[in-house]
Design a protein around this nucleic acid. Structure first.
Lengths: 338, 338
DNA sequence: TTGAAAGCGCTAACAT
DNA sequence: ATGTTAGCGCTTTCAA
């Protein structure tokens, strides 16, 4: 493998001069520069990043940690992130934690070993216990690089954050059903141990309260954000032939489960049952399988997160900012009944 | 930032001894080891990967280059890759080329700068011209690490490869339609400038030939693997009210476009038109939106690719292997007509 | 079993 | 404008 020393030799100059053209700093005669650049080209020399970052004690690598890459939400976010990264000559070192705390800890440790320049973290778990949060804080501190929290907020941790208006999105979904004239409104919740699931549930409750609609216990289906669970819950509800006028579903997967049960039971969306989901599902959009939903611009969310990280890197002393990603209500008719 | 020197100082030993426990090589007294490990723990010291890889001139990083992360196929493959990576204490440095040759070249260059241990490359473009292939070869050679080609094969390049039986999959799809009694069979092709699109087209042609079914030009819809194009093509076909008994679609996106047109025109799949697609679409499976298709185990494909790379890293001299991923025919009834 | 010393490929003062 | 030198944080001979 060819090194800076080789280039220096071939160009008849010292390593420092080569280094100067490499880094673009300091004075170097135009002729010398050209000569050196020529030699670099000819030998397709590429300086080693490890060697470069050692004296600088800094890398150009960004760590990205996501909990579930098989969720299209994170795919889209990752897409947005990599768009911004591309423009800035950074690298992404990427981890999928599979919602496992252990994997997340390992990922953060590796990120520390890599001396990354910054980290984007979409937490694997709900850090609800102060103990766990404290431990995470310690881990993050030791990474010694700015961290931006993505999607899943953690209380009592002061960082730059890009989070969703969970409460508002569920409120809007519920409100849409109520305004469409539905007298009873149910919900398929996420795992209420998770903060964002609770936020959405509370948004639902608040809308019901404001519009004076009673919350009927049997129409509150306690799910866990998984399609299969939502499917069973919805199926059971249909089987009992006791269904609310309308129902909201708390994420893309619960919506899929619900839609499946609804298809199988041959219930007509927007006629026999009104429905508004939280999250869009791209593929269904494409095949024109319409349902009303509240959504967010996920790719933009990724871009914004990365941008926030870049800003923080450039200006380490700036105040923490929390960006609340707005929701968007998209009505396709399924919020109606008949 | 705490270094090996600090640890040595705190443990009252030399850097070399600390290094020995870090690398797990050479002799070191049990007591000394324990002492050192204790100090490491207490200070949550994590050796710098840059510094480690410099004297070793080798990293534990794997470069992964994919052309389109918004395609669920690559998401699933990436998932498989990261599963294997996790088990081996490697890191993934990740690039999305967006099907751009320029971005791919840049990615490979950065991978070289990183001195990665190996590369998984799903090419951005069809290297059909010898010139382009030659250039790529040069680039890859300079990376100086094993490369495994994923999904999109390149002629005249001798590497480990994991590719799909494109011909076979299209043959099987077509055959399924023929065996189901369809007398005329059409196809929505991919971009025929691309090798795998041609492979699939040829699979279709061969099946037609073997079963003595004439290929009717107007039923060959020349697409480009994009949903929108497939949508327009299918829409136009329906509008002209001249449709084949059955039709195959060459990837997940063309299938989406086709399904959308079919929905909008209120044509009944499996009754008014028979259909078999290449690729599965997870989400449609989940909502029980059934259609017959040929598919492959994409997550396993990722795992296999990474495994191949690991094997190559362990044994640099072994012969190149080309793994042909088998297809699987899944009949759901839409291969029929009426 | 441990330590001293050289060196990995760069950058960044400091001289000249 | 260029070269010399020291050093980044490790690993790895080589001695002891």
């Amino acid at each position: 493998m060819i090194t800076i020393k080789d280039i220096a030799g071939l160009a008849g100059v010292s390593k420092s001069t080569v280094s100067r053209v490499l880094t673009g700093t300091g004075y170097v005669n135009d002729e010398t520069r050209e000569k050196i650049e020529k030699v670099i080209k000819e030998n397709s020399y590429e300086p080693s990043e490890s060697a470069r970052s050692l004296p600088k004690r800094i890398t150009n690598t960004i760590g990205v940690v996501v909990p579930e890459i098989d969720n299209s939400f994170y795919t889209e976010v990752l897409n947005g992130i990599s768009q911004v990264v591309d423009q800035n000559n950074f690298n992404i070192i990427y981890f999928n934690t599979n919602n496992s705390l252990a994997k997340e800890e390992k990922a953060l440790q590796m990120l520390k070993a890599q001396r990354v320049r910054g980290v984007i973290l979409a937490p694997a778990v709900d850090y609800s216990e102060p103990e766990a949060t404290k431990k995470l804080k310690l881990l993050l501190e030791k990474i010694n690089a700015p961290v931006v929290l993505l999607d899943r907020d953690i209380d009592g941790i002061s960082l730059d954050k890009v989070v969703y208006d969970n409460f508002g999105s569920a409120f809007a979904a519920t409100e849409a059903l109520i305004k469409a004239g539905n007298k009873t409104v149910g919900i398929i919740t996420g795992d209420l141990n998770l903060k964002h699931a609770r936020g959405r549930y509370e948004g639902y409750l608040e809308a019901m309260k404001q519009y004076n609609i009673p919350v009927i216990e049997k129409y509150v289906l306690h799910g866990d954000f998984m399609a299969d669970t939502a499917y069973s819950l919805a199926w059971k509800m249909y089987e009992q032939r006791d269904i609310p006028d309308g129902i909201i579903s708390c994420n893309n997967r619960t919506t899929l489960g619900f839609l499946r049960a609804t298809r199988e039971r041959k219930m007509k969306l927007g006629r026999e049952i009104a429905f508004v989901g939280i999250d869009h599902i791209d593929v269904l959009d494409i095949i024109d399988y319409k349902y009303s939903h509240v959504t967010r611009d996920t790719v933009e969310m990724g871009r914004a997160t990365m941008q926030l990280l870049m800003d923080r890197i450039k200006n380490p002393l700036k105040m923490n900012t929390v960006q609340i990603v707005p929701y968007k209500l998209v009505l396709k008719g399924t919020e109606l009944r008949k």
